[in-house]
Simulated assay, not measured.
Amino acid sequence: MIRRWLFEPVPRGRVAAFRTVIYLFVALDLVIFTPWVRSHANTPGDLYEPLLIGRLLHLPTPGPLLVWGVFWSLLALSLAAATGRAPRALGWAVFLLYFEWMIIAMSYGKVDHDRIGLLVALAALPTAGLARHGDQSRTEAGGWALRVTQIAVICTYFLAALAKLRFGGLDWLTSSVLAQAIIRRGTDLADAIAVVPGLLILAQFGIIAFELLSPLVFFVPQRWRTAIVSFFYTFHIVTFSTITISFAPHLAAMTSFLPLEKISFVRARSPQKQQ
């Protein structure tokens, strides 16, 4: 039963659309969402404190050659991978380069948890095989790639709740976490909400409940699953509108829940041409 669930077949067109979304996001991430990573090309090497995986792999200290080499190679290869051609060769190359890009990004004192789903998607997509936009034939390999990405997305929520309770205890629920976030980076909308008595505390209870209950998305009928995923996106819209935290990589990975093949306007090739 577990194997059937993990490898539930999905339309190849969905895999193709998801692949395009993920690889285009990688390109956008390089130039829009994390352009600051390029500044590490000139950051003093003694400030580099590699993550555990970086230490285990003995990865080199970032410098101009490494940072700019990864940047331009990853930009070119991610755009090529978005076309769906050479899915394994290009897919593995993009995963390895983006993995190094994240080690460079997160080895200077700050580690973001919104990239777990994206990294899992990049690792899984090369195993999904050939997929064409609009193709309605089903694939177990593609289903597995989407499923493990979905699991990573939900783990991001669930483990975030456990971390809050582990380090903040039950006091986190009644703390001033959201108030401090609004003071540091709040918008006009957040300022308007903050003056409502008890609303921020209620929101913190709601956040913990939402994150702890997020795995239920896997146990409800499809029509309810779509509604729950829509709620996830709404939650992040509200988060960005109030404290300007986007979770963009997480949102890209969360498209693994969506029937993306329905919005594909590219006609599938015939089976003979696919082979």
Rank of each mutant, 00 (worst) to 15 (best):
I208G: 02
S137R: 14
T127E: 06
G169W: 09
L159H: 14
G143I: 00
I207E: 02
A145K: 00
I154M: 07
T187E: 08
G129K: 00
G109A: 08
D191S: 11
G186M: 06
K110C: 03
A152I: 08
Q204T: 06
M106R: 13
P126E: 03
L189I: 11
I183L: 15
D171Q: 15
I208Y: 08
L189S: 12
A124N: 06
D135R: 01
D112T: 10
R166L: 15
I151D: 03
I151V: 14
I201V: 15
I183N: 15
L189E: 07
G142W: 00
L165Y: 05
T139V: 01
S137P: 03
I103E: 12
A128S: 14
T139I: 02
A190T: 05
Q204I: 05
F158K: 06
Y157V: 04
A190Q: 02
R147L: 09
I116H: 08
A192P: 04
I207V: 12
A152D: 05
M106N: 10
T127I: 04
R132I: 00
L125A: 03
A160W: 11
A152W: 04
V111W: 11
L159K: 09
V148R: 09
D112I: 07
I182V: 13
V120W: 03
G198S: 08
I208K: 02
Y108R: 12
D135P: 05
I208D: 01
L165K: 08
A121L: 08
S137I: 07
I151L: 14
G143P: 02
T156V: 04
L130I: 11
D135Y: 07
R184Y: 15
D171M: 09
L119I: 10
L118Y: 04
L202H: 11
I103R: 11
A160I: 03
A163I: 12
Q180V: 13
S176D: 15
A192M: 13
V148I: 14
L122T: 01
C155P: 01
L173N: 06
L122A: 06
M106I: 04
R138C: 04
A128R: 00
A163T: 13
L146C: 07
A163E: 13
H113W: 09
L119Q: 06
S137N: 14
G117V: 05
G168P: 04
Q180S: 14
A192Q: 12
L122F: 04
L170A: 15
I183M: 14
Q180I: 09
I103M: 13
I154D: 01
A123M: 13
A181V: 03
S176V: 15
I182W: 05
A105T: 03
G129R: 00
